[in-house]
Design a protein around this nucleic acid. Sequence first.
DNA 1: AACGTAAGGATCGTTGAACAATTCGACAAG
DNA 2: CTTGTCGAATTGTTCAACGATCCTTACGTT
Lengths: 223, 223
Amino acid sequence: MVADLSQDRPRLGRSSTAERVADILRDRISEGFFQPGQRLSEEAISDALGVSRNTLREAFRLLGHERLLDHRLNRGVFVRLPSAADVADLYRVRRVLEGAAVRRAPAEEALAVIKEAVLDAERAAEQDDWQGVGTANIRFHQALVSLNDSPRIDEAMRQLLAELRLVFHVMENPRAFHEPFVDRNRTLLGLIESGRPEKAADYLDDYLDHAERLLIHAYEPNR
Amino acid sequence: MVADLSQDRPRLGRSSTAERVADILRDRISEGFFQPGQRLSEEAISDALGVSRNTLREAFRLLGHERLLDHRLNRGVFVRLPSAADVADLYRVRRVLEGAAVRRAPAEEALAVIKEAVLDAERAAEQDDWQGVGTANIRFHQALVSLNDSPRIDEAMRQLLAELRLVFHVMENPRAFHEPFVDRNRTLLGLIESGRPEKAADYLDDYLDHAERLLIHAYEPNR
DNA sequence: AACGTAAGGATCGTTGAACAATTCGACAAG
DNA sequence: CTTGTCGAATTGTTCAACGATCCTTACGTT
């Protein structure tokens, strides 16, 4: 009867001020409060959050490793501003991770999460809630990748999508970008469900090619 | 003529005590000087290296994110000791990354690096240098994955292999593990060169299945 | 006008010390 | 043998300080 408790072990290790600070900053960055390219002052933020500079620096390191922050020696940390080459690389990784996902026989349970994400996107689109479409779309691809059934790949995808969100924040027209993909997600889901992995993989490649071209085109970081 | 200089840019950001400390520790861990499961005392190491505890902690954070160290709250950092589930996951990721690699039309230049790694492994095997075979084998797979042509995937593979090395350090007989793969690498290279990606992919899957089974079997971490 | 130099201020990098919080082992009590 | 209690050891976090580095501005040179 004590055996099942071991599953709760990870929850024990939680907290630590530095990690909580990192969580806060990660949220702020992903919601666009801190914009790409902006510098984050150690003094200002440590004062505002009421933590010491040392603790804040530990948080910075964490986010730097997630590629959300850019740490330049003696100049401070900046919210990362991905280059066009970064966008291209992100899509190369997506092709690998998502491509491998659709080729696998999907577990029933994982499929349900994907369906839910498709529905959410369609509902949000009907109400012109393009922010909502964006997050549902992200959930869709996260769930897609989870077909690989690998915690490490899930984690990598999480980071990748967080980085992509940085790109979206520099774009002006999210609707034009997200709109075409509501239907595509539905189609891709159908191909997966019907058990035609190669067809799904081909469709996905085209999907990602299209998205990447659209994104690179709409994206001209001011460097 | 100034254009090519942009490639040297990363070298500018170099240094920072914390990163150099992380480099040292990473080397020590990968060579087995610090063994998996071992606790790393903040005081002892900061004294030995002549840096402050704060700086050392920043280094710890870096390596923790690379999954080489395990940071347990209020108990210190430990050299990571991967579980059997970790090994399984690592091989799931390998199947995805290496599988995608062999399906791509290989660039001539990248192929050369792979060939070199195969030759090095064969040379080392002839001299019964099984440590050498191990590192050549790692170089082989790193080069294989580089066919994906993605810096992020290269980086992920680097981390993955560093983590795998932790597993090797808990094994007793590296020769039995590495020996069969010298020939397999040669065969896989042949399949890639002859332009039969699907055949190569199948062979690779079998390759990785075999390696994983062998590893899990020889691996019983004392937990 | 373009460039090199110098001075000053701001911010980061790193240190050392300090104290609270937590863990762990030992020992006593039940 | 289990359960409390205590104390040593170690980590978590803060704070203040100083040198190093970078950025800006100003000034002088060519």
